[in-house]
Design a protein around this nucleic acid. Sequence first.
DNA 1: CCGGCGTGTGTGACCGTGAACATGCCGAAA
DNA 2: TTTCGGCATGTTCACGGTCACACACGCCGG
Lengths: 341, 341
Amino acid sequence: MTVPGETQRTRAPSIRDVARLAGVSHQTVSRVLNHHPSIRPETKQRVLDVMAELQYKPNRAARALVTSRSRIIGILSASSEQYGPASSIAAIETAARASGYWISTASLESTDAASIADALAHLAAQRIEGLVVIAPQVRVLETLAEMSIDVPIVTLQSTGDDPVRALSVDQIAGARMATRHLIEQGHRAIYHLTGPQDWIEAEARMRGFLDEMSEQDVPTTAPILGDWTADFGYHAGRELLTVRDFTAIFASNDQMALGVMHAVRDAGLDVPRDVSIIGFDDIPEAAHFWPPLTTVRQDFAELGRRCVALLLGDIDPAAIEHHSTIAPELIVRGSTGRPAF
Amino acid sequence: MTVPGETQRTRAPSIRDVARLAGVSHQTVSRVLNHHPSIRPETKQRVLDVMAELQYKPNRAARALVTSRSRIIGILSASSEQYGPASSIAAIETAARASGYWISTASLESTDAASIADALAHLAAQRIEGLVVIAPQVRVLETLAEMSIDVPIVTLQSTGDDPVRALSVDQIAGARMATRHLIEQGHRAIYHLTGPQDWIEAEARMRGFLDEMSEQDVPTTAPILGDWTADFGYHAGRELLTVRDFTAIFASNDQMALGVMHAVRDAGLDVPRDVSIIGFDDIPEAAHFWPPLTTVRQDFAELGRRCVALLLGDIDPAAIEHHSTIAPELIVRGSTGRPAF
DNA sequence: CCGGCGTGTGTGACCGTGAACATGCCGAAA
DNA sequence: TTTCGGCATGTTCACGGTCACACACGCCGG
């Protein structure tokens, strides 16, 4: 097998190599790896020494094969280039790593069923042990059900009555806080710019808006269906300003709020004197917009961490609260104030 | 776990199950899977039918074990919650998926050596076949070398003379474009806000700035070391304005530019009348800042795609240009103009 | 004094797949 | 006709771990 003198075609060392050098059986090495209780300390040390010497690294594929456990958590995400999802992903990864799990992401390019199915199949092929769905559209959940993917699933951003286990910043409460803030300032003519209609998250914020408006007996106008982008906010703002029958706008994310502010200024008006604007998310830039944006803060990182806790509690059973919620926080800055008239 | 009467915990079908039902040997099934040329069409079809019927899915772990190929590409990234890195990651994932590869990410929480080593070890444990380093600090490259990770590596954002193979938007050219734009407008007192000092990317932009300044014979002030955040831009802006010996600022990303604009307005001054500001990246929000930000666009998505092509061309050898560069583009908006005096 | 039990360790099978090698068949070349 | 080579397929083994079981030993209680 080995030509003398030639540099050995180095196969990575296996437990059997370690075993041979340590003068034990491969099973003993395996026991050391898995922290089996009954091993003599000196035997264990000898094995550990050899491992270090050979720079032995367990082969994940072999382990996965025999245990049928991949220790991979899949993340299905849409618009993962945005601040919120991206922060959550980073937090999930960190938390998962700390627990000895790996993350594999699949991002959705479009919302059509084929794209969703493709991404899910990709994840399923890895035998993921858990799935985190970020920015879940209704369709994603449906497709999941169809493909009968039978791993624990956690979704971020839910409405609170989903079929799958969910964890979320309480979007409805956050939206109500934002709306109440505007009403308390004296606004009565308020528009709401929503996210894309099939986003659960967008729907929850809209529901919070409508709930608060009706509870406070403020007449409601129909929400305007947006797409999360600043561009959309800008164009919607221009459109609305041709009529100008409002004093405040609640945009369901900070980007759209930014676009609206742009449109308001283009029209020669002032924020917040002529129009108050409130956003949602509190992206790091929001504090530096002009004027600094009043918004609702979500702790995306905490969301990611809890998400992993929930999932692992399910994978390696151990009771954890199932439908837990993280409180959002109203951040009042300069973009909202009392209406001028 | 299994409640009596419940459906039996079924083991996933293997090629042997498929083989049995199709009346062939498992090896024939394997050949169908791997598109081996010499299989009778009717045999192949029979096998495919059985696969569909059983919903057979190849076991990646088993395949990885026997081929010693994981088909996983690792991504090591810092600040993956920011627009640029996040966009690149998404693009890399999409491109990799299209080529039948999986992505596993590890994000750096801090820049200390331990954190880097930990993330790399995590990726290495998966036997990744390629590594993409996003937002590479010098330290990352050093640690990589120390750990003797012997997979193809591609870094985004390089200075052009790295030891590892790199692919990048030409940061230096982009920075020169930005600087030249300011000079052409008539500015002579220009400050530069850099990114963190150990970021290759930040260094490249700084070098571009300095090169252009000296080539145009404009006296240079020392660059100010920043940290990419809008908060920093704001504080640096306030600080600089106490002296006010400049007419323009080149911030090496859009967030810092935003912070500076905030500080300028806080001081009762106008952008661009009193101070011109230019950023870098062209994040989607930049067009809606007030005023809309002049900046240098980087095509992060294209970067991600090319990155995968480069890596796979290395993994599955096939000649591809090695050190390729993507041209940045100057986007002139409202935040820059001629100095007032 | 003997059987049973706990501790520490070894032996062999097995997970699902692919590679190497073997086999049977058929047609073309010698 | 015989030989040879290629096609289509089967058989066996290896990959690197874990698991079930066996075994040797010492200790304890009946």
